[in-house]
Amino acid sequence: MSPAPPGEEAAPAIELAGLTRRYGLRAALEDVSLTLPAGATLVVFGPNGAGKSTLLRVLATLLRPHAGTTRVLGHELPKDGWAVRGRVGLLGHDPLLYRDLSPRENLRFHARLHGVGDERVEEVLDAVRLGLRTDDPLHTFSRGMVQRTAVARAILHDPALLLLDEPRANLDPAAAELVEPLIGAASGRTRVISSHDPAGGLAEGDLALGLVGGRTALLAPAGEIDPAQIGALYR
């Protein structure tokens, strides 16, 4: 991991105070406040359209916050987005890979953008065990294989903060186990995970956030929440 600048170590990984993001006049996120210590995991629950993906994209610097303060890895967004970029890894529904290129070509492209050496590409390719298929174009892959490549892409530059949007949706149990050391709790990274699975999500998280219509409906340490409370969000 890239050494953190002095003073950043102690700062919480994520600090939100009144974060608001609008689409036109409609608020996709409204007045969301929370603090996540470095190394901890935040699970975000909520029905479709509740603002989970918007939250992840704001944290990834892809969307500008419209109001409130947003500090990620000690830097304020959107002002210091450049300092955050390159230190977060985003794994969303979209693999962010070119379908006509092979995993190796895709990852080499990302490695150059992030200033990472080619040996790291081989390292992560080994880790997701694509075997002999690392030079086949991606459009010949199953969804699970694509997702494994996407995991490799997300952690290629060894990000301090991982943003995972239902990361295991397309993975079979064996593949989920395979990527566990890369994106699981053992990876030692700060994580924000969006999930639809109350029990599994709560087991994985330190802090749980429930969003309904862009507003905070629930915010508590994951250990203190009953899965039934999560189920209630969807009603």
């Binding site: 892809l62 450049w82 970029r85 962010l96 890979l97 070119y98 953008l113 992030h114």
Partner: peptide
């Protein structure tokens, strides 16, 4: 088109460049 449909824009915007 490839950047729009295959996430190339986001991938690029996530890089510190």
């Amino acid at each position: 088109v490839a950047d729009r449909e295959e996430g190339g824009f986001d991938a690029f915007l996530l890089a510190p460049v």
